[in-house]
């Protein structure tokens, strides 16, 4: 794998344009893990920030903030800390980043439900400069770009749950509730966000983690 080392955000997105099949390389838990074989990677660790800080009404979390950093920081919204806790391995949390986790748009992502329910603004770097989009739109694939940071409202209250056979297996389902907004994920099936019954919008599929009926039932009783 050829690893490109951009010195600026602009250079990073230009590299992506030059190598469309390249992946952004953040914490490495995806790019470097088993079964992934990319010809090109763009190392963003030196150009994307990892700080967590507050402004008057918001919490800003840099995309390179690791799950462990989020978990340990009292500046992080509690719902996000609970989401980070779903990653069961300390070593994984020390490497995996919030940006990397969300960029994969996985229906079994540790932070997927928590981020959807807490409705942050996601700041992207694109060829045309910075762009702020909703988490909904990003997760729906309406926008692409290099994730720079997440901007959460302050004083978020909520809960995150997951059900999986073991702590380390992919979760069959997860759910999050934040200030009355619900988000759900189901493996191999996708995710949904909205009211308490929004899980009904998911097209459930069976897989080795459970049948479609099982997952549907779990989300129906989750909250």
């Amino acid at each position: 794998m050829k690893i490109h080392n951009p010195k600026s955000l602009e250079e990073a997105v230009q590299l992506k344009k030059s190598y469309p099949e390249a992946v952004y390389f953040a914490g490495g838990t995806y790019v470097y893990s088993l079964g992934h074989d990319f010809a090109d990677a763009i190392d963003i660790s030196r150009v994307v920030r990892n700080e967590i800080y507050h402004t008057m009404n918001h919490v800003h979390i840099g995309a390179m903030a690791t799950l462990e950093k989020i978990l340990l920081s009292e500046l992080s919204p509690l719902i996000l800390r609970n989401g980070a806790k779903l990653c069961p391995s300390l070593q994984q949390r020390s490497a995996a980043t919030i940006g990397g986790n969300i960029a994969q748009r996985r229906d079994d992502g540790y932070l997927t439900a928590a981020v959807l329910a807490s409705e942050p603004v996601i700041v992207l770097m694109t060829e045309n400069g910075r762009l702020e989009v909703s988490a909904d739109d990003y997760m729906a694939g309406k926008y692409d770009g290099l994730i720079l940071e997440f901007i959460f409202r302050k004083n978020l209250k909520g809960d995150v749950k997951r059900i999986g056979r073991t702590s380390h297996m992919h979760m069959a389902v997860s759910g999050a509730e934040c200030n009355g907004v619900y988000a759900y994920t189901a493996s191999s099936s996708g995710f949904a966000k909205g009211g308490k019954d929004s899980w009904q919008d998911i097209a459930f599929e069976s897989d080795s983690l459970g049948s479609a009926d099982y997952k549907r039932y779990l989300l129906s009783v989750m909250f």
Binding site: M1, I3, N5, G27, G28, T29, Y32, S33, L34, D43, S45, E68, S89, L90, Q91, Q92, S94, A95, H168
Partner: peptide
Amino acid sequence: SDDAEGFTGSDTIIFNGSLMYSNLIPLCR
């Protein structure tokens, strides 16, 4: 022990003060 799955921890090192799986770190980092 896991061909870079990032699971078993046999490849654990302390890297810049954090416990990490060394299989998931390229040399350049």
